[in-house]
Design a protein around this nucleic acid. Structure first.
Lengths: 237, 237
DNA sequence: GTCCGATATTTTATCGAGAAAAAGATGAAT
DNA sequence: ATTCATCTTTTTCTCGATAAAATATCGGAC
């Protein structure tokens, strides 16, 4: 039984001006890990990746080191790299962490946000609502767009917090959470009215009610987590 | 005027078993950046670092990529690496971020911490107190030890929070703060009774009073920040 | 004297090959 | 049959050199 790997996905690694191959490899790998193209615990052998992405070993290793710092890749000394495993206990504390951070940022954004922020937020909410409608009418092609719009909406709520570092930490945590979420098979959205939850959050934020907004977001995240954990428990045994 | 760089600090880069040169370079560089040996905005040319640390270009570049992910190094495409600059605005939001995280972790630790955690915490507090006494009696040699003990004490307070990710994020933020703190020349400890502040925090934590402990830590951090900002304003103009 | 464009130099990024380490295979001894 | 040691193979890690990009230098035009 030989290796059945007929993976010909030679991605061109779109590199914009002033961009190094390391950056391109980092982005491509990061995307593939988060979306699940590179599966958890998968060994990332340099030579193989070199063929797949069409990049030499050096840029790849540098990209992998950065991903290791992000916690998306595990680097074991003299034993190479592998995609970080998925662990439900870790998922729980990941959600606790991101919720804490998100609520605090939300309060700061509500305190400091100006009219332009409100405008951006309303725009993001509008885009999300539109995509939600398309999804309700069985247009499955909009799913990945909806994912982006969802992320963009939540980011918009906290974007005015005024702290570069909290935004960075948030992005770190959300990247991990995204990976867990996408790894989940079902994602049965139908049992929830996500649009209503988002609308409620938007209202609370625009009303500058930090306390209510914080509680709504906490509940919003908690439900997603709960759902994914239940699903995993079922498939687990 | 030729280059007056007579820097012969050829550190042996102590590498333990199962440790790659990349790891060693990462640790050494990280330490040197945080302690201020490598100054803010300093350009990190590969060849020069190669001579200084006695490592080839490849492990160095990998280490620099990891440090870039940590935010200690700025990587500019095709223009190399440099130590991240110090900016007082950034310092403010950094402190806001770390305080938020710390207070939340403290509450979680107080909720979940067991007897063993208490024991470790008391031990850390004791070590810190001893070093504080040595520092009061003009024993300046204990300063770096005190720094470690101080970090260890605060880490001990939150170590039982039960979240690997919050601990990771915390370490990220504290590394940055440490850099700012060490870059400060004065560090005039004499105008503050740090030992008393630490004792108060310890008491509140052992009494499982999360609210009080949170307020004390917030104030503790705020004073340090305030002090450093004032000092900078004076030296600034 | 200043501005602009072409050349030369430095610095960075990348590749390919060699050294080191780990994993796997073979075979003898118990 | 199992264990241990040695050898082979694979994979990772590291180095030196080349290619590409950016910076600096120089000379001419205005």
């Amino acid at each position: 039984m030989e290796a059945m790997e007929l993976e010909k996905e030679r991605l061109p690694l779109a590199l914009e001006p002033g961009m190094t191959l390391t950056d391109a490899a980092y982005r491509a790998l990061r995307r593939d890990i988060i979306t699940g193209v590179r599966q958890p615990k998968e060994r990332l052998r340099i030579e193989r990746l070199s063929r797949l992405y069409g990049v030499g070993p050096t840029p790849l290793r540098e990209a992998l080191q950065r991903l290791a710092a992000d916690g998306l890749v595990i680097a074991t000394g003299n034993r190479g790299f592998s995609v970080a495993p998925l662990d439900m206990d870790e998922f729980v504390d990941l959600n606790l962490a991101r919720t804490t951070v998100e609520v605090q940022m939300l309060a700061m954004a509500i305190d400091k946000g100006d009219a332009e922020w409100e405008a951006q937020l309303v725009a993001a909410a509008y885009r999300l609502e539109k995509l939600d409608a398309r999804l309700r009418s069985e247009d499955e092609s909009a799913l990945s767009e909806w994912e982006s719009a969802n992320s963009a909406f939540h980011l918009a709520t906290v974007s005015a917090c005024g702290s570069k570092w909290l935004l960075h930490v948030r992005q770190l945590l959300h990247a991990q959470c995204d990976r867990y979420r996408r790894a989940s098979v079902g994602l049965k959205r139908h049992e929830r009215d996500l649009a209503a939850e988002h609308r409620a959050i938007l209202e609370a934020v625009l009303a500058r009610d930090a306390d209510l907004a914080g509680r709504l977001v906490t509940e919003h995240f908690r439900r997603t987590t709960e759902q994914l954990l239940q699903e995993h428990a079922k498939s687990g045994d």
